[in-house]
Computed example of a mutant assay.
Amino acid sequence: MSWPEPAPGVAGADQHRGVLVRGAATEGGPKPEEKPSPRKRRDAKKTARKRAPKPPERKRSYVCSVRLNHDERALLDAAASATRTSLPAFLARSGLAAAHDLDNTAAAVAGHRELVAELFAARRHLGQVGNNLNQVARAINSGGQPTEIDAVVTAVQRAVIRVQAATDHLLEQQ
């Protein structure tokens, strides 16, 4: 079966969506209109390496999957970039450091965290009481006689004792 010839003057060049369709110069060969690709060959060897590969006995071959929420991921990414390591390397190093220091258990870490929180709260309280003491001093300097001077001095002494106790306890743990 043969295809009918188009009517004279009706059919034009073969087009696909308005673009002229051109066949290859040879089957499977290069097209004369195209320039060779500037990409490098995949099998070309790299000329320089940043560092020597790890010996086989030190190479890490096990994969451990960790699930994190968005906040945890952001915090760990920031810590890893601060130490100039990748996130997996940071997690491996910090996990190994915790495993080597078995005295630093989860309860000890939680207690340490609570102690630091108490130290910051005591410091904040001392700042607030110190502000009250400054107001009393300003009133005295302007010729006034504030009635709450004894209460403010007592509160400052308690705040100083609180900060000192938290600091001493923190230093004893280290």
Rank of each mutant, 00 (worst) to 15 (best):
P56I: 03
E33K: 02
H16E: 10
A7D: 14
S61C: 07
P8Y: 01
A52Q: 11
G12H: 00
P32D: 08
S61A: 12
E33F: 06
G28T: 03
K50F: 06
G12S: 06
T47K: 10
P32K: 09
A13P: 01
V63A: 09
G23S: 13
P55L: 05
G18S: 06
P4E: 13
P53T: 01
Q15W: 05
P38Y: 00
R51Y: 02
R60L: 15
A48Y: 07
P55G: 00
S37I: 00
A7C: 07
G12A: 07
E5A: 14
Y62I: 11
G9Q: 03
K35H: 08
S37L: 09
G9Y: 04
R39N: 09
R39V: 05
P36W: 03
S61Y: 00
K46L: 11
V21E: 03
K50T: 08
V10H: 06
R51H: 13
K54E: 12
R22K: 08
P53R: 10
H16D: 13
D43C: 05
G23Q: 12
A48V: 15
P55R: 04
D43S: 14
P6C: 03
G9N: 02
G18I: 01
V63S: 13
R49W: 09
K35W: 05
R17E: 15
Y62V: 14
G12W: 00
G9K: 00
W3I: 08
K31R: 12
G18T: 01
K35Q: 13
R42T: 04
P55I: 02
R51G: 03
P4F: 05
R49S: 11
K31E: 13
G29F: 01
D14L: 15
S37C: 14
P4H: 09
R60P: 01
K50V: 10
G28S: 04
V10E: 13
A25E: 13
C64M: 15
P56T: 00
P30W: 02
V63G: 05
T47G: 02
P4K: 11
D14Q: 11
S37D: 15
K45N: 03
E33S: 09
Y62C: 00
